[in-house]
Amino acid sequence: MNLSYWEIKSWLTNVDFTIVGSGIVGLNCALQLKNRYPKANILILEKGILPQGASTKNAGFACFGSLSEILDDLKTHSEEEIVTLVKKRVNGLHLLRNTLGDSNINFIQNGGYELFFSEDELFHECISKREEINKLLKHIFNREVYTLKSNRFGFKNIINQYVFNAFEAQIDTGKMMTSLLRLVLKKGVKILNSIAVESFLEGNNLIKIKTNQFEFHSSKLFIATNGFASQLIKEKVKPARAQVLITKPIENLHIKGTFHLDKGYYYFRNIDNRILLGGGRNLDFKKETTTEFGQTTLIQNRLEELLKHVILPKTNFEIDYSWSGIMGVANTKDAIVKQLSNNAYCGVRLGGMGIAVGSLIGKELADLV
């Protein structure tokens, strides 16, 4: 890259903190660092034109877990660990709202619904253990989280009983990210896009960072690349692709709230009088464990089937377009926030809960310094 004296002096000299990734974690990390060190020179490197990964590609669910998801997590986590996870998700959502304001993320709390295809083992487990989970979480919310509702939206091929969560909400992901970017830039943080970090090397009180365009030195390095973390560091985090589609606007679309199916592997909502529907990676975990963006016929066909036979059975609709995002997951749901070396740190593995925990993980990452 042909850099001038001015470019090197203004962007790549005396860098105090370098953050890799301009998603929700990276931007919140920058905000926290700037609040603590107002005179610090902070540089964010983003490999995409827009933030890659999942921050600008998610479904906009402000949630902390459906009933079946929490029951499923209890198979590999203790009750204490589950309570800690839910607390972090709730606290992360509060931090997000306090940082940006509800109007700047279009926060709407219409509640969340879990739907069931049949009165199968999953349904009966949720019904039988609902009160137990409510008791487990009551001290967080001070009232029951999961209640029962009957079918009121005209969905087909599902049973008439839903599990309702009044605390669940939705946001506008695009507004959230543009608001975060605007706030970070206003604080004087610099962001360079289309810059991929290829490697870093710890030196004498400095880290040498090599990108696809240039090399430079930084006092501290923060890795906030979530699903892409394995490309830079050796931590237990795997990429998980999530495929999403959205319909064209539909007249008189009365569906309100956020909806979950099949342990949260499918999810949908109304946004701008369209149905946004995503999920299906459980159909092919191996193929969806990838950092490659794209769609597959298998999953797209399944999403279309759900639209036709469950969500919009009596409504004509057209699919406008589809996309995918990359999450960071593992067998455990807790994030990795740790010091990697003298001057390098990471905050990754958000487990598909980026909106809920991203702000908090960004703060925890900054607090490591």
Rank of each mutant, 00 (worst) to 15 (best):
residue 337 V to E: 04
residue 336 I to M: 04
residue 124 H to R: 09
residue 202 E to W: 03
residue 73 D to C: 12
residue 160 N to Q: 03
residue 244 V to C: 01
residue 109 Q to A: 07
residue 29 C to G: 07
residue 99 T to P: 12
residue 214 F to Q: 05
residue 266 Y to M: 01
residue 363 K to D: 02
residue 308 K to N: 10
residue 270 N to R: 10
residue 54 A to I: 10
residue 37 Y to S: 10
residue 262 D to H: 11
residue 32 Q to P: 09
residue 93 L to D: 03
residue 238 K to S: 14
residue 153 F to V: 11
residue 248 K to H: 14
residue 336 I to G: 01
residue 42 I to V: 15
residue 280 G to F: 00
residue 262 D to L: 11
residue 160 N to S: 07
residue 107 F to C: 08
residue 116 F to I: 00
residue 128 S to F: 10
residue 102 D to K: 14
residue 173 T to G: 01
residue 171 I to V: 12
residue 366 A to M: 12
residue 118 S to T: 12
residue 53 G to K: 03
residue 216 F to W: 09
residue 23 G to K: 00
residue 248 K to S: 14
residue 154 G to D: 02
residue 80 E to N: 06
residue 84 T to P: 00
residue 124 H to W: 09
residue 311 I to E: 09
residue 69 E to L: 04
residue 206 L to K: 12
residue 149 K to N: 10
residue 320 D to I: 10
residue 64 F to S: 03
residue 63 C to N: 13
residue 139 H to D: 15
residue 111 G to R: 12
residue 29 C to T: 13
residue 86 V to H: 00
residue 123 F to S: 05
residue 328 G to M: 02
residue 163 V to Q: 02
residue 49 I to T: 07
residue 216 F to L: 11
residue 23 G to Q: 08
residue 118 S to N: 08
residue 129 K to T: 05
residue 349 R to Q: 07
residue 350 L to H: 10
residue 329 V to A: 02
residue 302 R to K: 14
residue 62 A to C: 15
residue 275 I to M: 06
residue 127 I to L: 11
residue 221 L to E: 06
residue 205 N to M: 04
residue 217 H to N: 14
residue 279 G to M: 00
residue 317 F to C: 14
residue 139 H to C: 13
residue 48 G to W: 07
residue 272 D to N: 15
residue 291 T to Q: 06
residue 73 D to W: 15
residue 207 I to F: 14
residue 340 L to C: 01
residue 358 G to S: 06
residue 251 E to V: 08
residue 355 I to S: 02
residue 201 L to E: 15
residue 215 E to S: 14
residue 113 Y to M: 11
residue 250 I to K: 06
residue 253 L to Y: 07
residue 71 L to M: 08
residue 76 T to Y: 09
residue 122 L to R: 15
residue 38 P to A: 15
residue 103 S to P: 04
residue 331 N to M: 08
residue 3 L to A: 01
residue 273 N to G: 04
residue 151 N to R: 11
residue 41 N to Y: 05
residue 247 T to E: 05
residue 291 T to K: 03
residue 58 N to I: 10
residue 214 F to C: 13
residue 302 R to T: 06
residue 113 Y to K: 14
residue 76 T to V: 08
residue 232 L to W: 00
residue 64 F to A: 08
residue 225 T to G: 11
residue 33 L to K: 10
residue 153 F to A: 13
residue 229 A to T: 00
residue 302 R to Q: 11
residue 173 T to E: 04
residue 153 F to Q: 11
residue 71 L to A: 04
residue 54 A to Q: 07
residue 54 A to K: 09
residue 58 N to E: 05
residue 223 I to R: 00
residue 226 N to T: 04
residue 3 L to K: 01
residue 330 A to C: 04
residue 26 G to I: 14
residue 315 T to N: 11
residue 28 N to Q: 13
residue 356 A to Y: 02
residue 87 K to N: 15
residue 64 F to M: 08
residue 366 A to P: 05
residue 251 E to G: 10
